[in-house]
Design a protein around this nucleic acid. Structure first.
Ligand SMILES: Nc1ccn([C@H]2C[C@H](O)[C@@H](COP(=O)(O)OP(=O)(O)OP(=O)(O)O)O2)c(=O)n1
Ligand SMILES: [Mg+2]
Length: 1078
DNA sequence: ATCCTCCCCTAC
DNA sequence: TAAGGTAGGGGAGGAT
């Protein structure tokens, strides 16, 4: 498909930049609008503000040398980026810590399972990066500081990773951009990252925690959840006090149990001594309350949740604010276990912690798992902002608005209830591995994209190898610049984008960078985006193999964590390099110390919140399922005007009562005919390629018709519509739709002229920017039959008594047109084919390049080896040649390849060749399922292979020369003892060829390399079986002098090598990746 | 009902 | 100058 036509209008000067709409009247710059909405923090460079400058914004950006230097077109960009990305480090550390702590705990039976009453500690460094920066620097500790890139000039607008609490008092926040922060806090001191330090300190942190844990869950580099049930005196026993219930209570109780407060203090102290950084601790009866406690403890403190989940006291705690004026009185109500203040004397806080100690009224967003979106939904639709308000809402109502689970989460969380266990993610293996970059992504041409994607694939491959796993499925993630939206955003950032993703299957479990890159490029190419519009690219690998080598459980009895710690397993396993010793600066004696009581103790119960009676609304009972079906605006209207009571009309239809009012089937049945009324096939039956074949205006109309059909409530396109669309069309629709939403008629018209608003640079140039598509595959069917697999003319077929399995595998060639016809070759045996010969060096010339070391795929100009080609069945050979001809092997569209393969296969089977290939009878686009002797079940194939290999063993009477152990054995006629020995005649080359045909089809059509690997491995084992049965000294020298003795034309080992090598080459040509058996 | 696939959302 | 990554929970819609 051609790139979108260039609109006529490009040939006239436009009064505005068609890419950005700069110069159009009445256009407000639209601020950054991606997922993490921080619109208030957008400060940045104006892009393409000059209405005279009609160049594409990317072209403008790349005309600045510094940008060229630092963006994705620069070699080595990927590596450089990852070295500097804090978020990347955060993710990496988290994954590693999870791995390690999971492994460390796997062998160990849980200290106590299914405990009813738990004690959970949440611990988190205060302003971690910032703390590390000020560690041992008292002069910095009294200033507001922030950790960010670009510490040099005052013009820097990088993001703040972490700022200390002094800075926070100015309103500065983590994640805020520097320019904004400086307006809030002009004296902000910006300090650089120290990634290595964060790592080292984290190790110390975890070592200490593991020494105190019944169970530990790594949350992040500076944060962990620790089950300390056995270490602490139970504090929230609902109705039981600890002593009574030893069964449901806490087994394995450490006799030295202490109060949670004392425990927290001890841990904090240890951590400070080891790291020089302060961590805050929250302790509660579940994860939720522990986390909420930490929030209250910060900075530099601890908080023990005072009451059980769901209790009246907890509900009040969750509502309460602490006004600024109320300094915590010493004699305020203490938590159940009051703080052991004697500990605190030896634990000295930094000179200044922060200025204020107030606590704002807790809001919905404070709950873990509730972020911007849900919080916003609740505000808009239920007018709920605070936890207090949330507590008034019925569970069903929350579920209707936020979904079942999220509704439950909200309902339970605002009451302090949470049953989540720490152990739960113990046994969960990683599900996916990905690498994605959406900063600095700017391209001018497809070649640069290619290089970048290969780097990304390399990165993913590296990460897979690190955890010793392989994947079978990949997702290509793309961010594409939203057209026509001008605005300001961070330097070289992605700006406003649409996101796209497409899934593809890898042909086998793999971590091969070439396979991954090729598939990813194919998926990317499918979108046909202008490379100038690319803003982010990512590769995710999933469906990871599960044969993870589980750590063997070492001993029957449990090793305590403490002793595991002594092995420094954590250190070495987590970070390859040896740990640098941390020397926390001892506190100066004369440093001011300030042990604020507020930091450690808590906290008066908040004044009872006044519950205003809501103005009376009419009550309405409504089934929650019904409510959910209503359009959003109707829902909101009901919510606004009525007091809704949700009921569950279970639609039980116990006795198959009459037609339900609104059964599911009913609604489907309504959908279906309504589509047929329009004379349109259903979406699921629609082939995107058919759509693409339509001329553009017709296509557009058809799509609109579909879109309107499936449009649900106002303002929202049905997801299934979009999902069913070919991506490039989808992009177009989404974009156009955006404009409809914006109600800008002019823009709308413009949008209809091209899919990405491109076309200003002139057609020829623009063309080069689109990734090329493979030409429609017209496969050449007229090819000579491939030459013999063995060297020219020396191989032969020979009918043998037991040669080949019953009904030996036979391709078309054996039936008359192939070499199999050549029955009268001289019976000559080539000694070089003996088993003991180095088949690699002297073997047949057909297998050129056999046993080469595994080579990287050559993406650019793969050589087409004539002999290799000759080994392939005709149709596959055609495919390989076609692919090579376009020199786009790495970018081939698999869809088309599949199509072509099927077409060819169909043609092939019609013509009566193809080694038993048969199209699956299933309808729709289905992959070719090749067969061997009519079999394709793996079990059947194994039987077949076994029979085949065993069938070439023959018994032979031989005379062994006495005393000649190593020498040759003469067959018959020699002097010495007569023995019956087993010989292996080796396979019939025709059969080998047939087998190769089959394998090639599995590779090229079924595209299942895992299957290939299984079969080849099985074959190899059978061959090894044979070798074990053959008289060890009897190497098949193949001196077939007598008619009775069969000359060995080709040994099994040679045949196998040959098949393997052809396979490898085929894989390189089709997938561009390597293939190994093991 | 329950699965799968394609998203969006959240957290650090 | 700047480095907006990444894994997993879960909802919506379709297939089974
Ligand atoms: N938007 C963010 C949030 C966090 N981080 C990094 C820097 C933080 O120091 C570290 C830990 O995150 P926290 O949420 O724990 O924040 P802090 O530790 O900085 O502050 P505190 O925990 O005291 O609130 O993660 C980041 O780079 N960008
Ligand atoms: Mg922290």
């Amino acid at each position: 498909m051609d790139p979108p036509a260039i609109p006529i209008s490009v040939y006239k000067p436009l009064p505005f930049n068609p890419y950005t709409r700069a110069g159009l009247p009445g256009m407000m710059p639209i601020p950054e609008s991606n997922n993490t909405i921080k619109t208030t923090e957008i400060v940045g460079t104006q892009i393409a503000a000059d209405p005279q400058d009609n160049r594409h914004p990317t072209v403008i950006e790349l005309s600045v040398p510094w940008n060229r230097q630092n963006c994705s077109i620069q070699p080595g960009f990927v590596e450089k980026f990852y070295q500097s990305s804090r978020l990347h480090y955060l993710s990496t550390w988290k994954a590693k810590l999870r791995d390690i702590t999971t492994k460390l705990q796997k062998d160990r039976p849980p200290v106590a399972t299914t405990r009813v009453h738990r004690t959970i500690m949440h611990i988190d460094f205060d302003c971690f990066f910032a703390s590390v920066a000020t560690r041992g620097k008292p002069e910095l500790q009294v200033k507001p500081i922030a950790v960010a890139h670009g510490t040099g000039g005052s013009t820097s607008n990088s993001e703040i990773a972490s700022c200390n609490y002094l800075a926070r008092d100015f309103g500065v926040k983590n994640g805020m951009q520097l320019l904004k922060a400086r307006t809030l806090c002009p004296d902000l001191v910006v300090v650089p990252y120290e990634f290595q330090q964060y790592e080292d300190i984290s190790i110390e942190f975890y070592k200490i925690l593991l020494g105190h844990a019944d169970e530990l869950q790594a949350v992040s580099v500076d944060e962990a959840l620790v089950d300390i049930s056995s270490k602490c005196i139970p504090s929230w026993g609902a109705r039981s006090n600890g002593g009574q219930l030893s069964v449901s209570g806490t087994p394995d109780a450490d006799p030295s149990r202490i109060s949670p407060a004392a425990f927290a203090l001890k841990v904090r102290q240890e951590i400070f001594l080891a790291t020089g950084c302060h961590a805050s601790v929250g302790i509660g009866p579940n994860i939720l309350l522990a986390k909420l406690s930490t929030k209250r403890a910060k900075p530099h403190g601890q908080y023990i949740w005072p009451s059980p989940p769901g209790s009246e006291r907890t509900l009040e705690e969750l509502q309460g604010a602490v006004p600024d004026l109320i300094e915590d009185p010493e004699d305020g109500p203490s938590p159940p276990d009051s703080v052991n203040t004697s500990f605190s004397q030896s634990y000295e806080p930094p000179p200044v912690v922060r200025k204020s100690v107030s606590r704002k009224e807790p809001v919905v967003k404070d709950l873990p798992g509730i972020g911007y979106k849900i919080s916003q939904d609740l505000l808009e639709r239920l007018n709920v902002r605070t936890l207090h308000q949330l507590q008034q809402i019925a569970r069903e109502q929350l579920q209707v608005i936020c979904g079942m689970k999220t509704g439950d989460l909200l309902y339970n969380s605002c009451r302090g209830m949470d049953e989540t266990t720490l152990a739960s993610d113990r046994d969960k293996a990683r599900q996916s591995v990905s690498a994605e970059i959406s900063w600095g992504v700017r391209f001018e041409n497809p070649q640069q994209v290619d290089v970048f994607m290969r780097d990304l694939a390399q990165e993913v491959s590296k990460r897979l190898k690190e955890i010793d796993r392989k994947g079978k499925s990949i997702v290509m993630k793309i961010m594409k610049r939203k057209a026509f939206i001008q605005g300001t955003w961070k330097h070289l950032g992605h700006g406003p984008v649409d996101q796209f993703a497409r899934t593809g299957q890898l042909p086998l479990y793999t971590d091969d960078p070439d396979l991954i890159a090729n598939e990813a490029l194919r998926l990317l190419n499918y979108f046909q985006f202008d490379v100038l519009d690319l803003r982010g690219l990512g590769i995710q690998v999933l469906k990871l193999n599960n044969d993870v080598v589980n750590t063997v459980s070492k001993s029957a009895f449990a090793l305590p964590m403490e002793s595991l710690m002594n092995q420094t397993t954590l250190t070495s396993a987590m970070f390859q390099k040896s740990m640098t010793v941390i020397n926390p600066r001892p506190l100066d004696k004369n440093e001011p110390t300030l042990l604020s009581a507020t930091a450690i103790t808590q906290e008066p119960p908040p004044p009872p919140i006044e519950r205003r009676a809501e103005p009376e609304k009419p009550t309405m009972e409504i089934d929650s399922g019904t409510f959910k079906e209503l359009p959003k605006d109707i829902q909101d209207e009901l919510l606004r005007d009525h007091k809704l009571v949700f009921i569950n009309e279970n639609t039980p239809e116990v006795s198959g009562v009459g037609p339900g009012v609104m059964t599911e089937r009913g609604s489907t049945a309504v959908d279906q005919p309504s589509e047929q009324k329009h004379g349109l096939p259903s979406w699921s039956q629609l082939d995107p390629r058919d759509l693409m074949a339509l001329s553009t205006p017709i296509m557009r109309d058809a799509l609109k018709e579909y879109a309107e059909l499936k449009q649900t409530d106002r303002g929202k396109l049905d997801r299934s519509v979009l999902q069913a669309l070919p991506p490039e069309i989808r992009a177009e629709i989404e974009q156009e739709y955006t404009h409809i939403m914006e109600s800008h008629e002019l823009i709308r018209k413009l949008a209809q002229t091209g899919s990405s608003g491109s076309g200003c640079d002139g057609g020829a140039v623009a063309n080069a920017r689109f990734q090329l598509r493979a030409p429609t595959t017209a496969m050449v069917l007229s090819h000579e039959y491939p030459p013999p697999p063995l060297d020219q003319g020396t191989s032969r077929s020979k009918t043998r008594g037991r040669g080949g399995p019953r009904g030996r595998p036979r391709g078309s060639r054996a039936r008359g047109r192939g070499r199999g016809q050549m029955s009268d070759h001289p019976e000559r045996v080539d000694d070089t084919r003996c088993l003991q010969d180095d088949a690699h060096s002297s073997g047949s010339t057909t297998t050129a390049g056999q046993a080469q070391p595994k080579t990287r795929a050559q993406p650019k100009e793969p050589e087409l080896d004539a002999d290799f080609l000759a080994a392939l069945p005709q149709d596959i050979r055609a495919e390989v040649e076609a692919a090579h001809r376009v020199e786009l092997i790495k970018n081939r569209r698999r869809q088309e390849a599949d199509l072509a393969a099927q077409k060819d296969a169909a043609a092939a089977s019609r013509q009566g060749f193809g080694g038993g290939s048969a199209l699956n009878e299933l309808q729709g686009p289905v992959l070719e399922r090749p067969t061997l002797m009519g079999k394709r079940e793996i079990g059947d194939l194994r039987v077949l292979l076994t029979q085949w290999v065993q069938s070439t063993l023959v018994e032979q009477d031989l005379i062994r020369k006495k005393g000649d152990r190593q020498g040759q054995v003469e067959k018959e006629g020699g002097r010495g003892s007569v023995e019956t020995v087993v010989l292996d005649e080796g396979p019939n080359p025709d059969d080998v060829q047939s087998f190769m045909d089959f394998i090639a089809r599995v590779i090229a059509m079924e595209r299942d390399l895992e299957r290939v690997r299984l079969m080849l491995r099985y074959l190899r084992r059978r061959i090894e079986d044979n070798e074990r049965q053959v008289e060890p000294l009897l190497l098949p020298v193949g001196q077939g002098r007598k008619p009775a003795v069969v000359g060995v034309v080709m040994s099994w080992r040679q045949a196998f090598e040959w098949v393997l090598n052809v396979t490898r080459q085929l894989v390189v040509h089709i997938y561009g990746g390597s293939f190994d058996l093991d």
